[in-house]
């Protein structure tokens, strides 16, 4: 059957001028466009349009996911990432969005939550208080969500997951839990991650006073057995949900296996917000 071929070719030819219309893709150099084209012509959308990204961009009305993924690809090409890395990232993003399996059970009552309670999207972070990667990513991510356009639709939740054997993970985790029990978690966490390199067991008590707590109150609460019990529950929950490294992020109960970068997570969140609104 030869019929579909010329039709496909016509559609592809019509797609060529169209894909360049996404703003990020227009900025690419000639060499970069070739790479982006190769990828966009061969990667398929996982939702809302059953074809390659290029073809979906051409069909009217264009699927917003097609534009989003095209921007993503072009951004990566502009940043100098190679083809293999981009394809793998797309695949992991797809798995994060439509991966199968039951949603993770996360006790949001015990978690520390920030944001509107009726938000359609909940982002849960499992992190260790002494994890350097967490100290870079989480403050950036929290600020992007809390202070950005996503603030109406995304609720943030934090679950402390102390990495076993990591120097200071238990006392620092206890401090995080204490701050949560005393209702100053988010300022304390941001302060602690901001002063990550200066951590000592003594320093973190000083940090508590910086965010408005009294030393005695903090130390007493930290020594309370219920604090450790809560920390243990949080760690156990992470283990049950398959957390093997920190940070691990769940969006509406689905584990995020894409890049752990703020720009990528924000992009993914925007997509989920749109999808849950439909």
């Amino acid at each position: 059957m030869n019929r579909p071929f010329p039709i496909a070719m016509i559609i592809t030819l019509c797609a060529l001028p169209t894909w360049a219309q996404t703003p990020v893709c227009e900025e690419l150099t000639v060499g970069q466009r070739r790479l982006a084209e190769t990828i966009l012509d061969s990667e398929h959308l996982y939702d809302c349009c059953d074809n390659t990204i290029s073809v979906c961009l051409a069909t009217q009305p264009a699927c917003s996911l097609a534009e989003r993924l095209a921007d993503n690809v072009c951004r990566r090409v502009a940043a100098g990432q190679d083809e293999q890395r981009i394809r793998r990232a797309l695949s992991r993003r797809a798995r994060s969005m439509v991966g199968g399996g039951a949603p993770a059970e996360i006790d949001l009552q015990s978690a520390v939550v920030l944001g509107p309670n009726d938000a359609p999207v909940t982002l849960v972070i499992y992190a260790c208080a002494r994890c350097p990667y967490c100290s870079r990513l989480i403050p950036e991510l929290v600020e992007a969500i809390r202070d950005g356009p996503l603030q109406e639709n995304v609720r943030l939740a934090f679950r402390i997951f102390p990495i076993r054997g990591h120097e200071g993970s238990t006392p620092a985790g206890l401090a995080f839990q204490t701050a949560a029990d005393l209702d100053v978690f988010w300022p304390f966490m941001l302060y602690a991650y901001g002063h990550f390199d200066d951590w000592t067991e003594e320093a973190q008590v000083r940090w508590a006073t910086e965010v408005g707590l009294e030393r005695k109150v903090f130390e007493t609460q930290m020594a309370d057995p219920s604090t450790r019990a809560a920390l243990v529950e949080s760690k156990k929950e992470g283990l049950v949900n398959g957390v093997e490294a920190t940070p691990t992020i769940f969006i509406n109960g689905r584990r995020w296996v894409g890049d752990l970068e703020t720009v990528e997570l924000v992009d993914g969140l925007e997509e989920v917000v749109i999808r849950t609104a439909q």
């Binding site: 350097p132 967490c134 076993r164 490294a245 920190t246």
Partner: peptide, 15 residues
């Protein structure tokens, strides 16, 4: 080098 190298990775839970 234009973009900084990814020096850190998520901390693995040992086991």
């Amino acid at each position: 080098a234009r973009t900084p190298y990814q020096v850190l990775v998520p901390c693995p839970e040992p086991g």
